[in-house]
Simulated assay, not measured.
Amino acid sequence: MVLSMAVPLVLHILAAVIWVGGMFFAYMALRPAMGATLDPESRPRLWLHTLDRFFRWVWGCMAVLLITGLWMVFGVYGGMGSTGAYVHTMLALGLVMMALFAHVYFAPFRRLRQAVTVRHNADAAFQIGQIRRIVGINLILGLLVISIAAAGPYF
């Protein structure tokens, strides 16, 4: 029982840290630094290449989060009926985060790639703004989920 919980829990936490930590870094450190140091024409290409690499990690993290979360719920706890409300809340918020990420990836990020390819910086900047807003929402949700995970069992 201990090993069956330890492995998915560690993988689950690592995936959450990579995803939420990456959003925090991009939103709170990279974005302000780019605005202060790079000319507006360089920013879209850097954002495109940075997000392209990060989004590959996010896809993997989402898969790990789903697999390990369901492994713990059904393989260790015996189903959703045996878990606390905080687990239900984490799952619901996690699914919302995944849906928001999928939207970012398939809509504004795809349009950012197209705008950078044709060097249309105004459209690229608009798409970056769209991505930034949704990532900001996802960052807040991710920090909330982490708080619920840490404190949930104590309520």
Rank of each mutant, 00 (worst) to 15 (best):
F25W: 11
F25E: 01
A26H: 03
Y27Q: 15
R31C: 03
A33V: 12
A33I: 11
G35E: 14
T37S: 14
T37L: 12
D39A: 10
D39R: 14
P40I: 01
S42M: 07
R43P: 00
R43E: 08
P44S: 01
P44E: 01
R45I: 07
R45P: 00
L46V: 15
L46T: 10
W47V: 08
L48R: 15
H49W: 11
D52W: 10
D52N: 14
R53G: 09
R53Y: 03
F55M: 06
F55R: 03
F55E: 05
R56E: 02
R56A: 00
R56M: 07
V58T: 04
V58G: 00
W59T: 06
M62E: 10
M62F: 11
A63P: 01
V64Y: 00
V64W: 00
V64E: 00
L65C: 03
L65W: 00
L66R: 02
L66G: 12
I67Q: 00
T68I: 04
T68L: 02
T68R: 04
T68F: 02
T68P: 01
G69Y: 09
G69H: 10
W71D: 08
V73E: 08
V73Q: 04
F74L: 10
G75H: 06
Y77V: 00
G79P: 03
G79D: 05
G79C: 05
G81M: 04
S82H: 13
S82W: 07
T83L: 04
T83C: 10
A85H: 11
A85Y: 13
Y86Q: 08
V87T: 13
H88D: 14
T89W: 05
M90K: 15
M90E: 15
M90Q: 13
L91G: 08
L91K: 06
A92S: 09
L95N: 07
V96P: 10
A99Q: 02
A99K: 02
F101V: 04
A102M: 11
V104P: 05
V104A: 10
V104Q: 09
Y105P: 03
Y105L: 13
F106W: 13
A107K: 13
A107W: 11
A107V: 15
P108S: 06
R110Q: 13
Q114A: 14
V116R: 04
V116F: 06
V118D: 08
V118I: 15
V118G: 04
V118E: 13
R119I: 04
R119D: 14
H120S: 12
